[in-house]
Measured scan of single mutants.
Amino acid sequence: LPHTAVCLVCGEAGKEDTVEEEEGKFNLMLMECSICNEIIHPGCLKIKESEGVVNDELPNCWECPKC
């Protein structure tokens, strides 16, 4: 993702460097949905019932829970 990318919900950049544990890092890193192209911190999504499908081949790419 470009350095200028920010979260659609909170308007902040990736914050994964501020935590140690892997789950915390994931919730604070910016992810781009391969379907709707929205860039968001997974932790900013209010959807709890399902998780997005992470694409292991492309960094910061997933199918968000909304899609």
Rank of each mutant, 00 (worst) to 15 (best):
D56S: 13
K46A: 11
E20F: 05
N37C: 15
E21Y: 11
V9A: 11
C10A: 04
P2Q: 14
E38A: 04
T18K: 08
E63M: 11
E23I: 01
I35F: 02
M31E: 02
P59N: 15
S50Y: 15
M29V: 05
E51Q: 06
I39G: 08
C44V: 00
S50A: 12
E57C: 12
P2Y: 15
L30K: 11
E32V: 05
T4M: 00
E20H: 07
N27T: 08
E49L: 10
L58R: 13
M31K: 09
D17P: 08
P59G: 10
L8K: 14
C33L: 01
E63C: 10
S50K: 11
E22I: 08
G14N: 11
G43Y: 11
N55P: 06
G11C: 03
E20K: 14
D17Y: 05
E38M: 13
E20G: 12
L28V: 12
E32C: 13
E49G: 12
V9F: 06
C64D: 01
G43N: 07
N55S: 13
L8A: 00
L28T: 15
C64P: 01
S50R: 09
E16M: 08
D17L: 04
E22S: 11
P2N: 15
I39V: 12
E49M: 11
S34Y: 03
E21C: 10
V6T: 14
E20V: 11
F26E: 07
A5C: 13
I47L: 08
N37D: 11
W62C: 00
G14I: 04
P42M: 03
C33D: 01
E57L: 11
H41A: 00
C44K: 01
K48I: 11
C44Q: 01
D17M: 15
L1W: 04
E32D: 05
A13M: 15
E32N: 15
P2L: 15
L28M: 15
E16P: 11
P65Q: 03
K15Y: 02
G43Q: 04
C36L: 02
K48Q: 14
K46E: 14
V53W: 09
E38K: 07
E38H: 02
C36Y: 02
P65G: 06
P42Y: 14
P59E: 15
P59I: 07
E32I: 10
K25E: 03
E16I: 03
K48A: 14
K48E: 14
V53R: 08
V54R: 12
L58I: 08
G43R: 07
C10M: 02
